[in-house]
Design a protein around this nucleic acid. Structure first.
Lengths: 253, 253
DNA sequence: GGTACACCCTGACGTAACGTGAGGTTCAAG
DNA sequence: CTTGAACCTCACGTTACGTCAGGGTGTACC
């Protein structure tokens, strides 16, 4: 039956496409039926011949390979392309997209694991976790993250909670000393500086790379886990004076 | 500077978004600035406060995880979701998409290799190759394809070309016999049937699975590599009568 | 106080590949 | 000649903005 005629509905049923899709292909000039009922009356029913069916099949194939309708059209009208080059190029694009999606998947999985490890997950902690993770990924290399993860396991949750509680206390004391106009060289301030350096060293583990990433993060972000970083930068200048006076430095800088 | 105000341009520069994007977020109610210049005059410049900046940051993070703006909005307004479940669900979706893209990549690579192996690649042979590959993927399992590939290497290109040239000749002869009204039991027709069976056996290698897939393909498709399959089905009935008369069967059926 | 100029504003249309009606017409059977 | 199914042509909706067009605003300088 090579000279049989097909109506849209039949063709749609056969190919798994919808009637609307065939209408669309007609509208954009990708596949117009070779005939219509009622001759030139316009608005007659579409009649597709065998050649149209073949063309449609090719269109579907190219679509399944991920080409856009525009590309398919270009490709089928102007046949002056090098098929190999086209396929190779398209392949590269698909590979890139696949890699990106896979990486996104990895990040989501890491997030999911982090959330599972947390005690309670309110929407707020959720948003905070995401923010922290995103920021962290921006400043630390994957190797550094692995390193931090191992250190975290060594140190243990208890100590981490202690440190997290210690920071606000320390910052409050530094602020008090600054507001009081205390000389950074004052032994009390030098003590504060020693505690500050101690906490930072505990985090970096003396690794210069991690110290650099950390510095970079606090230099560029204004908000890290809800902390007022600009204020911290001001304190840092003060603390650094005290460090000079006490003759101490960060580990591994 | 927690109480500093930001204008769209500044915020855009800081976040890497565009001004238009911020306008868009405002328009869809995802992030509206807390203030405007010129009070209630309408059409004053947008003024974002620190809280707005934080919210924007969270929006950006969620977007980078692949959530749609609609989802982000839902998530940030109604906070009665289980973050873990949401992330796991989203993760699965992303993984599925990544797998699909990876598979598409594999198919494209197979296509590219096939094209590289071909002598000349005109757009027509290209389209034909795609059609054949797509159809083949539909009927044969990956294992069967591997099997066919190995057999193809064993047999060699020369024999494949011979067979491809032989089919049209054979079909023409069968048609002639049919049109002449020759009895299928006629020895001449039995010979034709033997040749037919021989060619099919050579392709299937006597594998029942491949025979089944092949049959399925020719039973469901009306066009395989430009061949008039409906006509072949008619011939097949005739050939089968001759096969019965000759007492032969397909290998491994 | 005026003026330049950068920056801001609000529409409004375009994108890809159709989905989804609305409202009217045509075909094939009875 | 009448159904009912299948068909027809608009035309708007979808996503996340890009890209003008045409006109206001803020601020620095004279």
């Amino acid at each position: 039956m090579p000279d049989r005629l097909w109506k849209v509905g039949e063709l749609a049923a056969r190919t798994g496409l919808t009637v609307r899709t065939l209408h669309h292909y007609d509208a954009i000039g990708l596949l117009s039926p070779s005939g219509r009922t009622g001759s030139a009356h316009a608005s007659g029913h579409r009649l597709y011949i065998a050649a149209d069916v073949t063309r449609l099949h090719q269109i579907v194939c190219l679509k399944q390979l991920g080409f856009s309708l525009e590309q398919v059209k270009e490709y089928m009208t102007r046949a002056d392309y090098d098929p190999r080059a086209v396929v190779r190029l398209h392949l590269e694009k698909v590979r890139r997209q696949a890699a990106e999606l896979a990486e996104l998947g990895d990040r989501l999985e890491a997030l999911a694991n982090t959330l599972d490890a947390a005690d309670a997950v309110s929407p707020d902690t959720f948003l905070e976790t995401i923010e922290v993770m995103t920021m962290i990924e921006k400043y630390y290399t994957p190797e550094q993250l692995e390193q931090l993860k191992q250190r975290k396991e060594q140190v243990g949750d208890a100590r981490i909670k202690e440190v997290e509680a210690e920071w606000p206390r320390l910052m409050a004391e530094v602020r008090t000393a600054m507001d009081a106009g205390t000389d950074p060289a004052d032994p009390k301030v030098q003590d504060l500086a020693r505690r500050w350096v101690g906490l930072v060293n505990e985090f970096t583990g003396g690794d210069p790379g991690i110290f650099k990433s950390l510095s970079s993060m606090y230099a560029n972000e204004d908000n890290v886990r809800g902390m007022d970083v600009p204020a911290m930068r001001t304190m840092m200048e003060y603390v650094q004076k005290a460090m000079s006076a006490a003759g101490i430095t960060f580990a591994g800088q």
